[in-house]
Design a protein around this nucleic acid. Sequence first.
DNA 1: CAGGTGACCCATG
DNA 2: ACATGGGCCACCT
Length: 110
Amino acid sequence: MQNRDNYFDLVYQVVKLIPKGRVTSYGAIANYLGLKSGARMVGYAMNASHSQPDIPAHRVVNRNGVLTGKHHFPHPEFMQQQLESEGIKVRNDKILEFEKIFWDPNNLEI
DNA sequence: CAGGTGACCCATG
DNA sequence: ACATGGGCCACCT
């Protein structure tokens, strides 16, 4: 299942599994899926997520907890607004308590 | 066909 | 602690 067409869906499935009020990173998804392509392809897949509904892309941030992809949303503030709507605090385009609300797909203890 | 780009990450100076 | 460079690979021009 190394079809690129499939890995897009795989990323979508993982992103859909992100619990509300939690966030994850591109690298974590790449690691969970075993994508040697690295985290970059995960971000690339997210870029195509506009075609798929129910993709909480706002719950996916980089390893720094920074909203790197906020510019790709309908509005730059949309991503932060969605995060705050779920109880996630964002300050200066960075998620507060990032380690606390971080959700690792490979370590589902919740 | 070749070069450039990218919602990233890691190692090194 | 900050700055820089390299690596990774799919997609676009």
